[in-house]
Amino acid sequence: MEFLYETKTGSLRIFTPREIDECVASEMREEADMLIDNYQIRHLIFDFSNTEFMDSSGIGMLIGRSRKMGYIGGSVEAENLSERVQKIFTLAGLPKLITVVKEEQYD
């Protein structure tokens, strides 16, 4: 699977795919880490605009990236969460680790 992403001096925006399960999460983990190291990323943004489904494997991957960014003194944000993804975030306590940016159209 190919992931869409954008990098801008020190910042990386990953557009997460439609469904995030174990299979997808393990590929995202490798690709994100490679990009974080190669581009010396300090600010990581997960853009969930396209994501309709995520299970606990996605949670594991996000917690792992949040730790990695923590070690290197960086930050992690999540944007454009659907109601479903928001529910999964809340259930897993992710908002304590990752800043969830609320958009006006998502209220």
Binding site: R29, D55, S56, S57, I59, G60, M61, I63, G64, I88, L91, A92
Partner: peptide
């Protein structure tokens, strides 16, 4: 070490 969240059964129950 494999970054498992440990939330699998909790999600099933939820």
């Amino acid at each position: 070490e494999a970054e498992r969240s440990g939330m699998g059964f909790c999600f099933m129950e939820a």
